[in-house]
């Protein structure tokens, strides 16, 4: 067991976690943050993606014990004051969500990309999302949505 302080979706959580406890378990089983899904628990699908310090990581490959002092954002922490993030809006408007099981991880992976590169080319978007599987959409509308979000964010920061 280890005592850790982790900031999750802007709330600091004081937790006592098992040495072998995965971050995905802490989020879902301990904290009831069910927005983060998983699909393989082997690091192969990207479904369990969360942000640690803004970077996308696979919560099925990270031990909660190693997250002491980290700032974690899950899909549930992305909206600000009830207003969805532009990526969430674009995913909704562009038809990038079918079953929605990949969506939380996909949006967070895209978030991490736009943090580093606010104006990515389509190929860069595809490359950034390559670790995130989606079986429903064929990725076409997902890439559309990320492009749309980046354009809208850029426009609003310029104006």
């Amino acid at each position: 067991m280890k005592k850790v302080n982790i900031e999750i979706d802007s709330k600091v959580q004081e937790l006592e976690v098992r040495d072998s406890e995965l971050l995905i378990e802490t989020l879902r089983d301990r904290l009831g943050l069910m927005g983060t899904k998983y699909s393989c628990l082997e690091g192969d699908c990207g479904v369990c993606t969360v942000l640690i310090g803004g970077r996308n990581v696979l919560s099925c490959l990270i031990l909660s014990a190693d997250c002491d002092g980290e700032k974690i954002t899950t899909i549930e922490g992305l909206a600000k004051n009830g207003e969805p993030h532009q990526l969430q809006k674009s995913f909704i408007e562009k038809g990038a969500i079918q079953c929605g099981f990949c969506t939380p991880g996909m949006i967070l992976a895209a978030h991490s990309l736009l943090d580093k590169d606010p104006d990515p080319e389509d190929e860069e978007i595809a490359r950034a999302l390559d670790g995130n599987l989606c079986r429903c959409t064929g990725y076409v509308k997902i890439i559309d949505a990320v492009r749309d979000a980046s354009q809208k964010i850029n426009r609003s920061t310029k104006s």
Binding site: R28, M34, G35, T36, K37, T74, I75, E76, L78, A79, P84, Q88, K89, F91, I92, E93, G95, I97, G100, F101, T103, P104, I107
Partner: peptide, 21 residues
């Protein structure tokens, strides 16, 4: 018309419930 999916908001927010959850 290409209206947004009726369940897209909750799915984008991570609130949509699956039996999995």
């Amino acid at each position: 018309k290409s209206v947004p999916r009726i369940d897209a908001r909750e799915k984008a927010a991570g609130e949509a419930k699956f039996v999995f959850d």
